[in-house]
């Protein structure tokens, strides 16, 4: 008898909890779906939280190139900075977040490729990046991608850059994989690792960090083409609006300012702003 009462009580608690979470997610859905109207509503944008120069959460707010682009686009869509809700979009979650409607759009070093384009729509591209390497500033051995074959490379586990190295660029290189790029930097500084590889825009962001200034340099190899686009839900009418906003950002020079502010200190020679819809293979 006592047992049954306990069961009933816990069932009630469970039901309450479920109901509460259901309500919670309903609220969220409301706010994000009605946000497309503008006015005093909110817009939810997915960005990276842990990539300096691209999208980083700092104690004083959010910084990075993606953040600047997203803020500009949001402004063109009719949202002020304080109406933006930032949300972390981890690489693996991006498609799901858009499909579920958790975010209105995603600007998170999101390279356009066929598998992804089948699931979501891309506005842009707004930046053409290349896979590159970051080496110690005094390194003289690594002059071309072929030199990497006898070296120790580091990248993030499972990432496209790591797979590229293994499959194509330098199959004989030893690859150390970590969870984040910051962990690679420990070894790069101590000499246990010779090069860190991923998109040059991300590398430039790390090299521009105050604590690493002057210690690392970019190889400048342009090993792949990564077209960063802004991801929206499949069939969304936001795509056309964001494209217009991005065009305006380039034409009024805000784009150049954002590049200079975020990547400038690393000596990163950026590509000119890509044309909308022009995906470089």
């Amino acid at each position: 008898m006592k047992l049954r009462r306990v069961t009933a009580a816990s069932a009630a608690v469970l039901a309450l909890a479920v109901a509460a979470t259901a309500c919670g997610s309903d609220d969220k859905d409301d706010s994000s779906s009605s946000s497309s109207g503008g006015g005093d509503k909110k817009i939810t944008i997915g960005i990276k939280f842990d990539q300096p120069g691209i999208g980083q959460k700092t104690p004083d707010g959010y910084t990075g190139f993606d953040v600047d682009v997203a803020t500009y686009v949001a402004k063109q869509l009719g949202y002020d900075e304080d109406q933006i809700q930032w949300k972390e979009a981890k690489s693996a979650d991006r498609e799901t977040m858009l499909q579920r409607g958790d975010v209105d759009f995603i600007a998170a070093s999101y390279s356009i490729n066929d598998e992804r384009a089948a699931k979501v729509d891309f506005a842009g591209p707004y930046l053409l990046a290349h896979q590159d390497v970051l080496v110690r500033a005094d390194d003289k051995d690594i002059k071309s991608p072929e030199d990497l074959n006898s070296k120790k490379l580091c990248s993030v586990a499972g990432s496209t850059s790591a797979q590229n190295v293994k499959d194509k660029l330098a199959p004989k290189a030893q690859l150390q994989q970590y969870q984040t790029y910051s962990q690679c930097l420990t070894g790069l500084q101590s000499g246990a690792i010779d090069a860190l590889t991923t998109d040059d825009s991300i590398l430039a962001g790390y090299a521009s960090q105050a604590s690493f200034k002057g210690k690392f340099k970019l190889g400048g190899f342009k090993m792949t083409n990564e077209n960063y686009g802004i991801g929206v839900k499949k069939g969304s009418d936001l795509k056309a609006k964001i494209d217009t906003a991005l065009e305006k950002m380039v034409s009024d020079k805000s784009w150049d300012k954002a590049v200079e502010a975020n990547f400038g200190p690393a000596g990163y020679e950026n590509e000119p702003a890509p044309k909308i819809g022009n995906v470089v293979k």
Binding site: A92, E95, E115, R116, A118, K119, A157, G158, Q177, Y178
Partner: peptide, 23 residues
């Protein structure tokens, strides 16, 4: 062990999720 890049099941899973968008 995937955290330090040992090529075991969880690491392959990350790789596949990154490529295939089939979470």
């Amino acid at each position: 062990a995937a955290a330090i890049g040992v090529a075991e099941a969880a690491l392959l899973m990350k790789e596949m999720i990154e490529n295939e968008a089939q979470l």
